[in-house]
Each structure stands twice: as C-alpha cells, then as structure tokens.
C-alpha cells in the first residue's frame, strides 16, 4: 500500500514539470514550424484548408532569394566581418589575458571591469556614440564596410574575454610557461605549442559564438547603413515575404549548426559545462 502511494505521489509530482516542458516545446517549436511553412508553401493562409494543405510546396522562395545579386555580396561581407571580428578578438584579447595572468595580476580587476563595460553601453547606445564621436572626428573611417568589425569586437568582448580568461584559469599557465621557457622555447613557441593547444576549446567556443552574433547583427549595421546579410534579409522581406522568411529560416539553421558544432568540438572533460551566451 505504502509502496503504491509512494509511486503515485512521485508520478503526481512529475505532472507539473511535464506540463511545463510540453508548453515550452509548443511555444518554442511552433514559430519555427510556421516559418518553414511560410517559406516553402505557396498557399496564402486564408485559402488554407484540408485540400490546399498538401499542394504547392516548393523551394521557389529560396531560389528567388538566391538569385538576388545582393544575397551573395551581403553574405560574403557578413562572413568576412565574422572572420575579421574573430581574428581581432583573438589577437587583442589572448595576449592581454595572458599578460594579466603572468605579469600583471594587479590589473585583473581593472581589465575585467573594462571588458564588461559593453554591457552598459548596448549596441543602440554605441551607435549614438559613433554618431557623436566618429561622425565629426573620423568620418573617413566609417566609409569602409569593415568599420563594423571593431565595434563587433567591443560588443562581444564581455563574453569573449570571460571565455578566454576561464580557459587560462583552467590550465596551469605558470607551470606551462616555466616548463617551456626552461626547455629553451621562445615566447612564440611557448604560445603556439604549450598555451594555445590547451586553450583551444575555450577559444573555439568564443570564436563560434562571436561568429553567430556577427552574422545576425542588425542594429549597428543598419544604423551605419551597411549592407550586411541581416540588413539585406530585412529589406528583402518587405519586397518578397516568402523569400525573406526563407532567408530567416536559413539563418536560423546555420546559426544552430554553428552553435551545435561549437558544443560538439568543445565537449571535452566538463560535459556539464554551461552553455555559452552573450551574458
């Protein structure tokens, strides 16, 4: 009797959590399904019924979008921006974080404080800052499409620095450096053969996350009137809703794939490692 009531009690106790999980599944999956339908189904919603539901499915919307000249130019710009942003981030933050650890522990609090400042100045405020500072002082700089990259580095800095810093803390940097140096390795060799391989997973995850954020970034690009993939998607949506929705779906799939790759590539020792976010 006691056994049964115990099992019933445990079962009843799971009803709440199960309902929460089911409701969440509906809320998070429904918009993706409706987007897939809007992208590939050529029947207006008003005419949708039992008979039309299975007709006119096609890839035509996406195909139209692919034929747009701007699709390719903006996509290539966004990909280049992602690569440049990641490169600047690594070249700037890895040496800085290592330097703070090895030579200047006193500066840690200050550097950590500075790297989280972009949280306080969100992209839309940074845009106002660009208008206030760069427009009057260095307008020429904003003419280049690649002017976006340094601002993306700043935007991503709170989590990129945190990830790099965590990667350094997880390994015994001091011992690795001393071992490599005492074996006659130069600083460059030490960095390349001892430090970077050990930090690879944290560097990779911050690189992937940075790339996905750059690919979807709209606020700064739109305000500085740059034709990136995100601003193109937005503009194209108003001309051709089906093609625009197809692009949105494509971006979503690509983003998920990138983040999934990041999880797979960096899943080493700590299986329970927290999923990375912008925050």
């Amino acid at each position: 009797m006691a056994k049964i009531s115990g099992r019933v009690k445990a079962y009843l106790g799971r009803i709440g959590p199960t309902l929460v999980l089911l409701a969440a599944a509906v809320f998070f999956i429904a918009p993706i399904l409706s987007t897939a339908r809007a992208a590939f189904h050529k029947v207006p919603t008003i005419l949708l019924n039992r008979h039309t539901w299975f007709q006119k499915w096609s890839l035509e919307g996406l195909r139209r979008a692919f034929k747009e000249e701007y699709f390719w130019t903006t996509l290539s710009l966004s990909l280049k921006l992602a690569v440049i942003t990641v490169l600047i981030t690594m070249l700037l933050l890895v040496p800085t974080a290592l330097f703070v650890h090895l030579k200047l522990p006193r500066a840690r609090a200050l550097v950590e404080f500075l790297t989280v400042l972009p949280y306080v100045v969100p992209p839309i405020a940074l845009v106002a800052g660009v208008a206030a500072f760069f427009r009057p002082n260095a307008r020429w700089f904003l003419n280049s499409d690649f002017a976006l990259a340094p601002f993306y580095v700043v935007m991503a800095m709170p989590f990129t620095y945190r990830a790099i810093d965590a990667g350094i803390k997880a390994i015994d940097v001091r011992t690795l450096v001393d071992a490599s140096r005492s074996l006659g390795g130069s600083w460059f060799t030490t960095l390349r053969k001892a430090l970077l391989p050990n930090m690879a997973s944290s560097l990779l995850s911050s690189a992937f996350l940075t790339a996905t954020i750059v690919l979807g970034e709209f606020t700064i690009a739109n305000s500085l009137a740059k034709n990136t993939f995100a601003t193109f998607s937005f503009e194209y949506f108003s001309r051709d809703a089906q093609g625009g929705v197809g692009l949105a779906l494509l971006t979503l799939v690509a983003t998920t794939a990138l983040l999934g790759m990041m999880t797979l590539l960096t899943r080493t020792k700590s299986r329970k490692a927290a999923t990375m976010t912008r925050f």
Partner: peptide, 30 residues
C-alpha cells in the same frame, strides 16, 4: 543547448519567426 541558440537569437530573425505564426496572416492566427 536549445536555450543557447534561442537566447542568442533575438534580432530580426526572431521577428520573422513570429510574424509567420501570429502576424495578421499567420498560421497560428488562422
């Protein structure tokens, strides 16, 4: 893992997802 994707999404993609579901001509609205 899904939370990692959705929390980082935002932006215009998210607006499109919901326009297809609950826009005036959305599937969910219908």
């Amino acid at each position: 893992a899904f939370s990692g994707v959705a929390a980082n999404m935002g932006g215009i993609i998210l607006a499109f997802l919901f326009l297809t579901l609950l826009g005036r001509q959305g599937l969910g609205t219908k």
